[in-house]
Amino acid sequence: MSHSIDLSRHPRRIDLDAPLHRKAGPTAHAMRPVERAEEPQTPQTCPAPRYLTNNEAAAFLRLSPRTLEKQRVIGGGPRFHKFGRRVMYALTDLEAWASERSFETTFDPEYIDRHPGAQRDDQ
């Protein structure tokens, strides 16, 4: 007893008008981009601020999640938001906090003012 399917009773139907099977002709060139229906243009709006969890923010800054937790308590870390019990960081706040900590050299006067340990060699 054979369990093969007789495909001759089920002829395969091919839609020749489908884009997959349509050949390039005088009105449709193979290299010409397909024209799409006009879509209504929506005005560009500013995207809503994206919020990150403590672990996501730490990964973004390449810090330990515990470091961010400590900085929330003692200060000095990026601004954070509380939504109920949940602590979230806005991506813009993380980027602003990181850019405030950019210096050209360790002899930069701003660096010395912000890092009291940098002045201990002078004493």
Results as ranks from 00 to 15, higher is better:
His3Tyr: 01
His3Lys: 11
Ser4Pro: 00
Ser4Trp: 00
Ile5Asp: 08
Ile5Pro: 10
Ile5Gln: 09
Asp6Met: 07
Leu7Arg: 02
Ser8Val: 04
Arg12Lys: 15
Arg13Pro: 14
Arg13Cys: 10
Leu16Glu: 08
Leu16Ile: 04
Asp17Asn: 04
Pro19Lys: 02
Leu20Gln: 07
His21Phe: 00
His21Arg: 05
Arg22Phe: 06
Arg22Val: 01
Arg22Ser: 05
Lys23Met: 14
Ala24Met: 08
Gly25Arg: 03
Pro26Tyr: 11
Thr27Tyr: 13
Ala28Gln: 15
Ala28Tyr: 12
Ala28Leu: 11
Ala28Asp: 13
His29Trp: 09
His29Cys: 12
His29Val: 04
Ala30Phe: 11
Met31Ile: 13
Arg32Leu: 11
Arg32Lys: 15
Arg32Tyr: 13
Pro33Tyr: 05
Val34Phe: 05
Val34Ile: 12
Glu35Arg: 14
Arg36Pro: 09
Ala37Lys: 12
Glu38Phe: 02
Glu38Asp: 10
Glu39Val: 12
Gln41Trp: 14
Thr42Phe: 13
Thr42Ala: 12
Gln44Tyr: 05
Gln44Phe: 07
Cys46Val: 15
Pro47Thr: 08
Pro47Tyr: 06
Pro47Leu: 06
Ala48Glu: 12
Ala48Cys: 09
Tyr51Trp: 06
Tyr51Pro: 00
Leu52Lys: 01
Thr53Gly: 03
Asn54Arg: 00
Asn55Cys: 08
Ala57Gly: 02
Ala57Cys: 06
Ala58Lys: 03
Ala59Lys: 07
Ala59Phe: 02
Leu61Ser: 02
Leu61Val: 06
Arg62Glu: 15
Ser64Asp: 14
Ser64Ala: 15
Arg66Gln: 12
Thr67Trp: 06
Leu68Gln: 02
Leu68Val: 01
Gln71Leu: 13
Ile74His: 14
Ile74Ala: 13
Ile74Glu: 14
Gly75Met: 03
Gly75Ile: 04
Gly75Val: 00
Gly76Leu: 05
Gly77Leu: 00
Pro78Arg: 05
Arg79Ile: 00
Arg79Val: 06
Phe80Asp: 02
Lys82Ile: 07
Lys82Thr: 06
Lys82Asn: 08
Lys82Gln: 08
Phe83Tyr: 04
Gly84Glu: 02
Gly84Lys: 01
Val87Leu: 02
Tyr89Asn: 02
Tyr89Gln: 03
Ala90Gly: 07
Ala90Glu: 09
Ala90His: 06
Leu91Pro: 01
Thr92Glu: 14
Thr92Val: 13
Thr92Arg: 12
Asp93Cys: 11
Asp93Tyr: 04
Glu95Arg: 14
Ala96Leu: 09
Ala96Arg: 11
Ala96His: 12
Trp97Leu: 01
Ala98Asn: 10
Ala98Glu: 14
Ser99Ala: 13
Glu100Cys: 14
Glu100Phe: 10
Arg101Trp: 06
Ser102His: 15
Phe103Ala: 10
Glu104Cys: 07
Thr105Cys: 05
Thr105Asn: 07
Thr106Asn: 08
Thr106Cys: 11
Phe107Tyr: 15
Pro109Phe: 04
Glu110Asp: 15
Glu110Gln: 13
Ile112Ser: 04
Asp113Trp: 15
His115Tyr: 10
Pro116Gly: 09
Pro116Leu: 03
Gly117Asn: 11
Gly117His: 10
Ala118Gln: 01
Ala118Pro: 02
Gln119Pro: 09
Arg120Phe: 10
Arg120Ile: 15
Arg120Asp: 15
Asp121Cys: 15
Gln123Ile: 12
